[in-house]
Amino acid sequence: MTEKKTTAKKKTAKKTEKQKFVPKIVAFACNWCSYAGADNAGVNRIQYSPHFRVIRTMCSGRVKPAFVLKAFEMGADGVLVSGCHFGDCHYIFGNYRAVELFEKTKKLVHLLGLEDERLRLEWVSAAEGIRWAELINEFVDQITRLGPSPLSENGKKS
């Protein structure tokens, strides 16, 4: 078991060396469900990719288009917005509002020619540590496959 893991690790290390592309991913997590879900992954020691950074907000409804666009402007390769499942929101309908804002953001990101996969909205509950881990792994994989954002090195504010 241990042996297998080390070889697997070496392989990934080699791979990254070859590709040299480490994605820049921003994950917005709501305090009550998704951030708690990420904590749950920790308590259960579920291992997942470290190639992302978390920003905690109280509610997924707080994540406005400007934040997401700013992230892409600054060179992010992927943005994940994560909130509570429907019916589970600490603020009752905050996640529905998040969907409305997200739809807007998604249209803009699409117009800009970014691949639709670079922006995701997902629901992770406080008990779904495994889901959080799988989600991050899957998203990191997806963005790694897509490669760097066509905007990553440009468009930064001077």
Binding site: K5, A38, D39, G42, V43, Y48, P50, H51, R53, V54
Partner: peptide, 25 residues
């Protein structure tokens, strides 16, 4: 900054990357 539940515990196989993530956060 949550460097335990969301870092050392979940990236323990990759201490270097985990440290990098912790420093960024």
């Amino acid at each position: 900054v949550n460097v335990r539940d969301q870092c050392s515990w979940v990236h323990s196989q990759e201490p270097l990357l985990a440290t990098q993530r912790a420093m960024d956060q």
